[in-house]
Amino acid sequence: MNRTTFTESLTKDGFPEAVLVTREANITMDVHQHPFEAKALIVEGDMHIRVGDEERTYKVGDVFHLRANEAHSERYGPNGVTYLVGRK
């Protein structure tokens, strides 16, 4: 998915303006949760998100979606990751 299509989908889904987030390479975040729903488009690098027993890899053009208070862990690839995220 490209940025324009992603931004349009956020607007349709009622998300406020998206922000660009960059994370350093090879960092791992243990299981945690956020009090908001998040929908993000990977624009550079890659990351892995584990929810329960399932881990998925997200690369440039992929979108991930986490529900509010959904427990998950994150691992960033060897080049780090940059993603455009909407939160509500």
Rank of each mutant, 00 (worst) to 15 (best):
V81R: 01
Y83C: 06
I49L: 12
A71S: 11
K12M: 10
G61S: 04
L10V: 05
G45K: 03
K59F: 10
L10C: 12
G80L: 05
G14S: 05
G14P: 02
H48T: 09
A40S: 14
P35K: 02
H32W: 02
L84W: 01
R50G: 10
V63L: 15
P78R: 11
G80R: 01
V85T: 07
S73E: 05
Y76I: 01
G77R: 02
L10S: 12
V19P: 01
Q33V: 02
H32V: 05
T22Q: 09
H72Y: 02
L84R: 01
N79E: 12
G52A: 12
E44K: 15
I49W: 00
Y83G: 09
G14Q: 05
A25W: 03
K12P: 15
E17R: 14
G52I: 15
H72D: 05
T4M: 08
T82K: 14
E44W: 00
N2F: 02
T7W: 01
M47K: 04
Y76S: 08
Y76A: 03
L84Y: 01
V51P: 14
Q33C: 07
E55K: 00
E54T: 13
P78G: 07
D46R: 00
K12A: 13
F36H: 08
H48G: 07
P35I: 10
V81H: 03
H32Q: 11
F36A: 04
F6L: 07
V51L: 08
N26S: 07
D30F: 07
L41M: 05
A25N: 07
P78T: 13
A68K: 10
V21W: 00
Y83S: 08
K39I: 08
V31N: 08
V19T: 05
L20M: 11
V21Q: 15
D62R: 04
Y58P: 09
T5D: 14
R50V: 04
N26E: 12
M1N: 08
P78S: 12
K39A: 09
G52N: 10
G45D: 02
R56K: 06
H32E: 09
N2Q: 13
T7G: 08
M47F: 00
H48K: 12
F6D: 06
A18C: 11
I49G: 02
H48R: 11
Y58F: 15
L66R: 00
R23A: 14
A40T: 12
R50P: 05
N69I: 10
H48D: 12
R75C: 02
V31G: 09
H48C: 05
V63T: 15
V63H: 04
L10P: 02
H34N: 11
F64P: 10
V43Q: 04
G61M: 14
I27C: 06
E54F: 14
M29S: 06
R87S: 04
T7Y: 05
N79A: 10
K88S: 07
L84E: 06
A38I: 11
Y76H: 08
F6V: 00
G14H: 14
T4N: 12
A68G: 03
M1S: 15
L66A: 10
A25S: 13
V81L: 04
G14L: 12
T7D: 13
